[in-house]
Simulated assay, not measured.
Amino acid sequence: MRSLRDFTSGVGFFLQGFGWVARNGRWWLFGLIPALIAFAVYVVALVFLGTNASGLAEAMTPFADSWGWRELFRTLVGIALFLGGLALAVLTFAAITLTIGGPFYERLSAEADPLSSEDEQPWWRTLPRSIRDSLVTLFYVLLFTVPLFFLGFVPVVGQTVVPVIGAVISGFFLTIELTTLSLERRGMLRKDRFALLRTNMASALGFGVAAFLLFLVPFVAVIAMPAAVAGAALLVRTRLAPTPS
Score class of each variant (00 low, 15 high):
Leu76Tyr: 14
Phe172Cys: 02
Arg198Cys: 10
Phe144Asp: 04
Thr61Gly: 01
Gly17Gln: 13
Arg74Lys: 15
Ser130Arg: 07
Trp20Gly: 12
Gln121Gly: 06
Gly208Ala: 03
Ile96Arg: 09
Arg190His: 02
Thr8Asn: 15
Phe73Ile: 15
Ala232Val: 11
Val41Met: 11
Ser3Ile: 01
Ala232Gln: 11
Ala64Arg: 00
Gln159His: 12
Leu29Gly: 09
Phe139Ser: 13
Asn24Met: 13
Ala35Asn: 10
Arg193Thr: 13
Ile223His: 12
Ser66Leu: 14
Ile33Lys: 03
Leu83Val: 00
Phe150Asn: 06
Phe150His: 12
Ser9Leu: 10
Pro218Met: 11
Ala94Gln: 00
Leu142Ile: 07
Ser203Trp: 06
Leu32His: 08
Ser130Asp: 14
Phe30Asp: 10
Ile79Asn: 03
Phe39Met: 05
Pro155Ile: 04
Phe104His: 13
Ala45Val: 02
Phe73Ser: 12
Trp67Pro: 00
Thr99Pro: 10
Leu56Gln: 09
Tyr42Asn: 15
Ile33Tyr: 08
Val217Gln: 14
Ala210Leu: 15
Ser130His: 11
Arg186Thr: 04
Pro226Val: 14
Val21Met: 06
Phe14Arg: 03
Pro114Cys: 09
Ala53Phe: 01
Phe150Lys: 11
Glu106Cys: 06
Ile176Trp: 12
Val229Thr: 15
Ser66Asn: 14
Ala95Cys: 01
Tyr140Gly: 02
Arg23His: 07
Ser117Ala: 14
Asp133Arg: 04
Pro103Asp: 10
Val236Pro: 07
Pro34Phe: 15
Gly10Trp: 08
Thr243Arg: 08
Leu240Trp: 05
Glu106Leu: 01
Thr175Pro: 10
Val222Ile: 08
Val146Ile: 15
Val168Arg: 04
Thr179Leu: 00
Phe194Ile: 05
Trp28Gln: 08
Pro155Glu: 13
Ser9Arg: 13
Trp20Lys: 11
Pro62Cys: 10
Val162Gln: 00
Glu58Val: 13
Thr137Cys: 00
Ala22Gln: 11
Leu72Val: 08
Ala95His: 09
Thr8Gly: 12
Pro114Lys: 01
Leu178Thr: 11
Trp20Ala: 07
Phe172Gln: 02
Gly10Met: 06
Ser9Gln: 13
Leu174Gln: 01
Ala227His: 06
Ala202Leu: 07
Leu196Trp: 00
Leu81Ser: 14
Leu189Val: 08
Ala227Leu: 03
Arg190Ala: 03
Leu143Ile: 09
Phe194Ala: 01
Thr8Leu: 15
Phe73Glu: 00
Ile223Phe: 14
Asn52Val: 06
Gln121Val: 13
Leu91Ala: 03
Pro242His: 10
Ile165Cys: 02
Ala228Trp: 06
Ala89Tyr: 07
Phe73Arg: 06
